[in-house]
Design a protein around this nucleic acid. Sequence first.
DNA 1: CGCCGATTGAGACTGGGTCTCGACAAGGCG
DNA 2: CGCCTTGTCGAGACCCAGTCTCAATCGGCG
Lengths: 149, 149
Amino acid sequence: MNAIDDTTAALAAFDRAGYRLTGPRRAVADLIAAREGHFTAADLVAEARARRLGIGRATIFRALDLLLELGVLERLDLPSGEHAYVGCEPIHHHHVVCSGCGRATEIDDAGLRAVVDTIADRTGYAIENHRLELFGRCPDCRATGGANS
Amino acid sequence: MNAIDDTTAALAAFDRAGYRLTGPRRAVADLIAAREGHFTAADLVAEARARRLGIGRATIFRALDLLLELGVLERLDLPSGEHAYVGCEPIHHHHVVCSGCGRATEIDDAGLRAVVDTIADRTGYAIENHRLELFGRCPDCRATGGANS
DNA sequence: CGCCGATTGAGACTGGGTCTCGACAAGGCG
DNA sequence: CGCCTTGTCGAGACCCAGTCTCAATCGGCG
């Protein structure tokens, strides 16, 4: 995908927010950029080790937290209960996750705002936060005839 | 709340699905029914131990899994990343979770169906599954003036 | 170039959740 | 009513994600 763009985006985010541009952070940004779909922290740790990058687990988790906070990354809760991450734009949005290949597509509001308002209205809750996650099969996986499930 | 109803609902679900109605399962159903808002597996384990019910951890997790599968319980992913459970009706719906008291209110579709369709249409994905979670303050907590946050 | 504080890596630690295995009990059947 | 089969149980080992500590190191400004 746009590996280089993602990498620089992440690094730029670090820089902009006043964090140092260190070697390990660059490495993590690279690892993430190289990912197509969603990934878990364990994936990164494993790959970092496989590539003998000499990056500690803690460092990866810290970088992940930072990128989460900067909005470059978002955390997904897969139906299995696992936590995964996807790189994305730092604006409010949601994801459709492919259950075949794991790729995640960003989607905008799509009318959700109104739904949330309706719910707030109906329940009397002051909604502060919401999360919508969709799981399905992407066009490619549908075309190639169910690579899984 | 409707503790007795919840308990019997859970037990009936066990029975209906062909699972044995054992003492430990009854106990877990009771514990869950006694809960007002959402709770974690650890909560149940702690309470079971406090009440000296002599129920093993594994048993509680197993019961939880079963109830999840039967649709009597639903898993929530709190923003903190924790997993929590809420008792609910075994039909498709979503939850609004109070960030003050932890209570969860069930909500129906509220127009979400249309949003999902729109998204499916726009992205080309075949949506198989979706989850909407809302977090906010319930009417009570708003009235009593921010018990937290 | 040198300094100071942010950052790092190794590994201990925590906490949620799973697995194993021998013992036990639910409930169908005779 | 009592037996037998088989699902279920409890204890504890185990696994894995994620966090924390702390001394060593490095980035980048002056």
